[in-house]
């Protein structure tokens, strides 16, 4: 069942996948959930306990699992496939490309343990490439929910969206942003905070940091918007265009800055000659390391404090 939290409570978005699946399972017998030995971590296990006949462990073989899900989808099932984002997207990349994207099969992929917020597992478990890879994949929708509730909504949206979908969730507990399960529509962003001086466009685990950065900046009389770009693809271009009219736009993603949200916004700005100076917050073309999520966010320049500093510096440069 959908849990009850207040805005600001710390909850891992991955919990929203398990609970969202259970909610779907009540009404949709065509759902089959498969996982590669990480269901306890991805939270697919919550569904498995409730609907054991619609769940299958596929063993530690992501490639086989993804192609097999495509076969099920061709027979009318709606397979939800989960593993760590790092392994699901990279180990099964060609299967995602050929059996799912090119074949346009109705497969729903969820990669948990996204970003350096995954923390102490270190770089092999920290998925920083999935957004860039999946954004480049034709025929895919890519969702990066901001909190537990939006993850529930995105899980439902994956079912409602016919065709290949990828969603990334987090292991790390992040602040609840929404007051209950929001309406989520592919291609639509959510303006969480309205400001006039600059804008932060963020997704996933960086939403909490972005909101905290905006609060820090408010104390310094800098008024900042925070836009939740949970639909990375299709991206809400209209909202990006609007925010890009400000003098500074900061993108924030817990992923490499090359190819994901920051790149998508850079493309939009360059192609339209929008006025905003863009600052891309995220992992800067490197692998991170083991550590606590907050330590890593600080060290790699992705904390609320770092976002606020980078935004202020950019504003200064623009005002010169």
């Amino acid at each position: 069942m959908i849990a009850s939290y207040k805005p600001g409570d710390l909850v891992a978005s991955r919990d929203g996948y398990g609970d969202g699946l259970v909610q779907l399972g009540e009404n949709h017998p065509d759902i089959v959930v498969v996982d590669a030995d990480l269901a306890k971590s991805t939270k697919a296990i919550v569904f498995a306990k409730k609907f054991p006949s619609h769940f299958k462990y596929m063993g530690i073989c992501e490639a086989d699992m993804v192609s097999m899900a495509a076969g099920m989808a061709r027979c009318g099932k709606v397979p939800f496939v989960s593993s760590f984002a790092s392994f699901l997207v990279k180990r099964a990349l060609d299967q995602i490309r050929v059996s799912v994207a090119y074949s346009q099969t109705n497969v729903k992929l969820t990669g948990s343990h996204a970003g350096i917020a995954t923390g102490q597992d270190g770089p092999t478990g920290q998925s920083i490439l999935d957004l860039a890879i999946m954004r480049a994949m034709p025929n895919f929708h890519v969702f990066v929910p901001a909190d537990y509730y939006e993850t529930v909504a995105c899980t439902q949206a994956m079912y409602d969206t016919v065709g290949p979908c990828y969603m990334r969730t987090c292991r790390e507990k992040t602040p609840i942003v929404f007051d209950g399960v929001p309406e989520f529509r592919p291609g639509q962003s959510v303006l969480l905070r309205e400001g006039t001086d600059a804008s932060i466009v963020a997704c996933g685990a960086m939403i909490g940091e972005a909101l905290a950065a905006a609060a820090l900046l408010e104390k310094e009389k800098i008024s900042v918007s925070v836009l939740n770009a949970s639909s990375l693809k299709p991206l809400d271009s209209k909202a990006i265009d609007r925010e890009a009219q400000k003098s500074v736009l900061v993108s924030a993603e817990d992923a490499t800055v090359n190819g994901g949200l920051g790149s998508a916004i850079a493309e939009r700005i360059a192609e339209n000659r929008w006025p905003a100076r863009l600052v891309r917050v995220g992992v800067q073309d490197t692998f991170a390391e083991s550590g606590q999520a907050h330590e890593l966010f600080e060290k790699y320049g992705m904390s609320a404090q770092a976002i606020a500093e980078k935004l202020k510096n950019a504003l200064k440069q623009e005002r010169k």
């Binding site: 089959v32 299958k56 490639a63 086989d64 699992m65 993804v66 192609s67 097999m68 899900a69 495509a70 076969g71 099920m72 989808a73 061709r74 027979c75 009318g76 099932k77 397979p79 060609d94 299967q95 050929v98 059996s99």
Partner: peptide, 14 residues
């Protein structure tokens, strides 16, 4: 390398 995995999925669904 992908065909049998897909076929397994079809057979499983069947």
């Amino acid at each position: 390398g992908m065909g049998l995995s897909v076929g397994n999925g079809m057979a499983y669904a069947g």
